[in-house]
Design a binder for these strands. Structure first.
Length: 186
DNA sequence: ATCCAGATGGTC
DNA sequence: ACCATCTGGATA
């Protein structure tokens, strides 16, 4: 397991997002390590992208998207759920990847390991299961502590691209195929 | 299986 | 007023 460095994230979001499928999201909480394989992501680009939080410019909430890549962007949605994003792109170029789904999550301590809900779908549930909240907003993921993205020597998964979820307000931008899912058994 | 209302609070 | 959502209950 190798920790992904800033160089990986500091590229165009449409390049980074699909490559994040199959990577591992690892969260150290106390003496426990929660890890999960990323299986679903969405790309959100700069101010032009009418589905992106960056469309209003660097507001207090979205300003993190305009900063350096490799930072966590966690926001509250619908008053009760948190959503976890990874900032991408070069500094000043706003973009981020929303992590919507993980699989083969596991919890491990010094003594042993136990499976977590083998599957999660939806960004809110994901944060719930992995214990990610707005307190993690602005965290540098490239340090790996307490949160990081790791690579693993595995064959690249095959992907399916679809429009993004829940962005019908975004006009023509809503139909762009900027959501990627690991192609799985039917 | 699908449909839908309600919860709940930050953001613009 | 509007959400990058989820749940439980109703319907079929």
């Amino acid at each position: 397991m190798s920790l992904l460095k800033r160089r990986f994230f500091a590229r165009p979001v449409l390049e980074v997002a699909p490559e994040l499928i199959g990577k591992y999201l690892v969260h150290q909480v106390g003496d426990e390590t929660l890890s999960a394989r990323i299986v679903e992501v969405e790309a959100y680009a700069g101010p032009e992208d009418q589905a992106s939080h960056a469309r209003f410019g660097p507001t207090p909430r979205a300003k993190i998207m305009f900063g350096p890549a490799g930072m966590a962007y966690v926001y509250l949605i619908y008053g009760m759920y948190d959503c976890f994003n990874i900032v991408t792109g070069t500094d000043g170029e706003a973009s981020a990847v929303l992590v919507r789904g993980v699989a083969v999550a596991s919890r491990s301590t010094g003594s042993g390991s136990s499976p977590l809900p083998g599957k999660t779908n939806g960004p809110g549930k994901l944060c719930r299961v992995l214990g990610i909240t707005r307190k993690h907003n602005g965290l540098d993921l490239t340090t790996g502590v307490p949160l990081g993205i790791h690579d693993r020597k595995e064959p690249p998964p095959s992907l399916t691209a679809t429009p993004r979820i829940g962005v019908d307000y975004a006009g023509e931008w809503a139909s762009r195929p900027w959501r990627w899912v690991e192609a799985g058994p039917r």
